[in-house]
Structure formats: C-alpha cells, structure tokens
C-alpha cells in the first residue's frame, strides 16, 4: 500500500487554479521531493494532504486514510512543518516541544530517541524563547516539534527557504537519517540543487506535475546538446545568444549561461570564435552535464 496516494486533486482560489487534477503516489519510507517555483501550488498540496484544506475535486489518502473523511486519524499519524515558522515565539524551546508532545498525548521523553539528533544542539538554549532563536535553530526546533509524536509521514513545506547553505546541508543530512528510521517524507523546495537528494521528485508548475521520476531518470532522459557559455559581457551575451541561429534556448545559471543547441554541426570552438569576432572577450564555451534545473527549464518551455 502506498503511504500517500493522490488521485486527480484540484483546488482553486476564486478564479485561480492552484492545483489541476494532480495525481501521484509516495511509497512507504520514501523521500519524495516536490520541486517548483513559488506559486506552483506546493503549499496548497501540503495543506490538502495535512487536512487543513478540502480539495474541490479528486481524492487523496495518507496511510490509506481519506483526507476528507478520516482527517482526525490522519492528524495523529502525520507531522507537518509549515513554510513559515509557526511555533509560539513567546514560549521557550522546551515549552514548545513539550506542549506539542502533550497535544498528541505523548511526552518528550517517550519519543526523545527520534528527535535526539535534531534537538541536541538546541538543548543548551532550552530556556530561551523560540522567537529569540537564529533561523537555523528555529528550523531545527520546528522539525523537532513536527516529529515529537512519532509520525509515520512527515510533510515539510519549503524547510530550507531562507536558511544558509551550511544549515541547508545539515538539514538534508537530518532528513536522510529520519528516512533510515522508516519515516515517509514529503518535502517541497524551490531549490533545484536539493532535488538530487530525494529518492523521487515531482516537477510542479502552475498546479500540474510535469514529470515524476527519480532525479537520475529525469537527468538521464535529457536529450539536448547542452553547453555552458561565459564571457566578460554577460548581459550582451545573453541577448545575442537568444537570437543566435541554431540555439534553441539560453538561460542564466549562476555565473554562466546554459544553452541548448539545435544545430548539430555547430561546435563549441566555432561558437567561441564567432563570439570573439563579435567583440566578446574571455569567451568560454564547453559541453556540460544537465542538472535538474536544465530539465525543469526544458519541460517548462
């Protein structure tokens, strides 16, 4: 039985379609990533699966329980960490944790093993108010509170947004460890580089999944010729490449431009000399391996 099964779910706000007939399944113990930009419908999907919102059409089950009719039972079995820090800022670290434990009829001591790794760095601040913690600490506390009742399914809505790169890496390390304990994890993120850390990912755009597969499958199915291009005048380069005959697409990726080439006769060295003739200096053109972001861009076209 699937841990989560979603069947043609739709939801609109007034006349905006947030979700359009979304379907997918998550296997027990899987780390499933929902990857997409802001406004793609990620939070709406989470709110439906955590029983905070009722879908307009379609059905969904979590641990075989219907999100509409069995919402009470689901709430006992899942943990949810909203995108926004939603703990009581005027209560201490310790009070927040034990408060959420008691709401589920359990105690911190009973499930301490599960949160130990995450909560340990917080122990020395346990009498500090939650509002006075740093961003990374807040996130650790929020995760501890979402885990303290030993949920079998964990929903994390953009847990790494606004978190520094080191803490982000830490956080994914924690998720890996939780997965080992058999917890099913659904995590959303706008950061494409985090996608490869998931078992399977769904690329979401405007309320629809474009593709659901393992990150390797998605990268493996990328058929385009992909090059990175760099020069000293990047914005002029972008404008030029976008109108260049034989280049299908051109996007900015950090300090390089990624281009897909339709003209198979074109060679990196040829393109380089053409660009140098057009007045560019320090030109660099080389073939690269596709990333999830390249795949997303291709699918989103």
């Amino acid at each position: 039985m699937a841990a989560i099964s979603v069947n043609k779910i739709s939801k609109s706000y007034r006349n905006i379609r947030a979700l359009q007939e979304i379907s997918f399944e998550v296997k027990p113990g899987e780390l499933f990533g929902i990857i997409g930009p802001d406004g793609a419908g990620k939070t709406t999907l989470f709110r439906i699966l955590t029983t905070l919102m009722v879908p307009e059409e379609g059905t969904a089950t979590v641990n075989g329980l219907d999100v509409v009719t069995d919402y009470k039972e689901i709430r006992k079995q899942v943990g949810y960490m909203p995108g926004r820090f939603s703990l009581y800022q005027d209560m201490t670290v310790e009070e927040n944790l034990s408060f959420f434990a008691t709401l589920f009829g359990t105690t911190v001591r009973e499930n301490y093993d599960l949160v130990k790794d995450i909560y340990q760095p917080l122990e020395k601040f346990k009498t500090r108010r939650a509002g006075k913690l740093s961003g990374g600490m807040k996130q650790k506390l929020a995760l501890s509170c979402a885990l303290i009742h030993k949920p079998s399914v964990l929903f994390l809505d953009e847990p790494t947004t606004g978190v520094d790169p080191v803490s982000r890496k830490d956080f994914w390390e924690m998720l890996r460890r939780l997965k080992k304990q058999g917890i099913t994890i659904v995590v959303s993120t706008p950061y494409m580089d985090e996608a490869v850390l998931c078992d399977r990912i769904g690329l979401i755009r405007e309320g629809e999944f474009m593709r659901i597969a393992t990150p390797q499958e998605i990268i493996g199915s990328y058929q385009e010729i992909l090059w990175a291009v760099r020069s000293s005048k990047m914005s002029a380069l972008l404008a030029e490449l976008r109108t260049f005959e034989g280049i299908k697409s051109c996007f900015s990726f950090g300090d390089t431009l990624h281009i897909t080439v339709s003209n198979e006769q074109l060679l990196p060295a040829t393109l380089k000399s053409i660009l140098e003739n057009n007045g560019h200096t320090d030109v660099d053109v080389y073939p690269i391996q596709a990333t999830i972001e390249d795949c997303y861009m291709l699918l989103a076209k």
Binding site: L52, K76, P82, L87, Y88, F100, L103
Partner: peptide, 13 residues
C-alpha cells in the same frame, strides 16, 4: 496571523 493556529490544526486537538 502568527500562523500558529495551523500548527494546532494539524494536531488532534
């Protein structure tokens, strides 16, 4: 406004 009601709403309370 603080969003804490969300966190309560996902508990069995």
């Amino acid at each position: 406004e603080a969003g804490t009601i969300e966190q309560i709403n996902v508990t069995p309370v």
